[in-house]
């Protein structure tokens, strides 16, 4: 088994006009996915990220503060899952609940150096 990172890109729930009920339903889909992964014993950990973003770029190390709402694509969180291969990890990523609102789930294998 190898470790993969599932990176969630592009969605934040601000400005979508979701009602409290819809937000709760969204949350429930996250839980369902998480539960499924736990039952299958594939999930190893994960975190949600706060929406404040500080960008540091360029030789001059230019610092820009912004809210994720201003960005087109922002990393909202990640899971680390254990899977046989990229195919299997992608299968797990099918459960990501935000495809319907324009979200992307990026699947990346975590590099391991042997010895």
């Amino acid at each position: 088994m190898k470790d993969f990172m599932l990176i969630f890109l592009g969605t934040n729930y601000f400005d979508m006009g979701l009602s409290p009920e819809e937000l709760q339903n969204k949350l429930n889909s996250w839980f369902e996915w998480q539960q499924k992964m736990e039952e299958e014993g594939v999930v190893k950990g994960g975190h949600a990220l706060k929406p404040e973003v500080r960008h540091i770029t360029g030789k001059k190390r230019t610092v820009t503060d912004m809210a994720s709402a201003e960005l087109k694509e922002v990393v909202g969180g990640y899971y680390i899952v254990s899977a046989r291969d990229l195919e299997h990890a992608s299968e797990i990523a099918q459960g990501y609940p935000d495809y319907d609102i324009g979200g992307t789930c990026e699947v990346r294998e975590i590099m391991v150096y042997n010895q």
């Binding site: 729930y13 937000l23 709760q24 996250w30 949600a48």
Partner: peptide, 16 residues
């Protein structure tokens, strides 16, 4: 209040 709920979802979705 709407904001609070969005924040809740953003956080809870991985750590309830």
């Amino acid at each position: 209040v709407q904001d609070t709920f969005i924040k809740a979802v953003e956080q809870w979705k991985i750590n309830m």
